[in-house]
Write a protein that binds this DNA or RNA. Sequence first.
DNA 1: TATTGTTATACTCTATAACTATA
DNA 2: TATAGTTATAGAGTATAACAATA
Lengths: 166, 166
Amino acid sequence: MPRSANSPKSGPRTTARAAAAQDGATEPVDSSFLRTLVGYNARRAALSIIEVFMQRMSAYDLKVVEFSMLSLVGHNPGITSRQLCATLGVLPPNLVGLIAALERRGLIKRLPHPSDGRAMGIHLTAAGTELMQEAEQTVAQLEVEATSRLTDAERKTLIRLLQKIY
Amino acid sequence: MPRSANSPKSGPRTTARAAAAQDGATEPVDSSFLRTLVGYNARRAALSIIEVFMQRMSAYDLKVVEFSMLSLVGHNPGITSRQLCATLGVLPPNLVGLIAALERRGLIKRLPHPSDGRAMGIHLTAAGTELMQEAEQTVAQLEVEATSRLTDAERKTLIRLLQKIY
DNA sequence: TATTGTTATACTCTATAACTATA
DNA sequence: TATAGTTATAGAGTATAACAATA
């Protein structure tokens, strides 16, 4: 049975992908060309951080995209599915199940949209608010650890340069 | 029928993911918390560049991972599957089909490993070498365009900081 | 006519178990 | 016993078409 990123309270554990990348105590490989590419380095760095992210969020039984959804709902009460899709780059049919799961868990609730009868406004429940207060603190702490080899100034510079790209 | 990332000569076209992220000419969304996270920004930047990457590589009928494989084989003649897996973070069972496809297209060939009877050394064919000379030039050009809002110094700094993370 | 949210569905990517041949 | 490569397969992620309700 494959490891579920959602299994609650499963302690820190490396992903199979990371394992595949680490076993290689074999011959060194020249990846100098790939390392000259911003895209390659950005992807490697993102995967490295997201791996830790998944480990820590498993304590809350949250996938990365679920954390992002809850964070956006928390900071944008009444946000619609359509806006979540646009912000997260998720297609509408694929968001349906994610929203349903969070609603079943009692973390979000959907209310009729005040001005658009087609849409539903999404809000955090009290339980969702409580969960996210802890989860966002955990994530902020995780960020510090994941970028511990950077100074504060470097970290700010890095974020500024990344945002200039997208 | 879904769009194949491999359909040759398909011209530049936006991905559905990017489309989902752009339609939103609607209400602005506050994503200030997510934007403080290195992981979030690195993922967004990587996706932004990889989208252009996919468009350009479709001219060579190459997926991102296939380009990476060919580049590594080109710079490491005789590299084994195991080494490719470790360097790219791909699990062995998932590499089998990728190697078979590139071999069928006559871009790589596999020769018995000189010192390990279990392994096969992977090499570029003449056709593979020719293709990669063009493809790597295209990628280098693409990188310049994708990071056109960065100065040369910023680009170097960005790569250095990203590599400090992973 | 266009948009929100939805169902159904298909393709791709990623992961695990288990096998073989060789070390 | 361990490792390289492979097969089969399951699960997660991502994509398109088409529909009902509302704008």
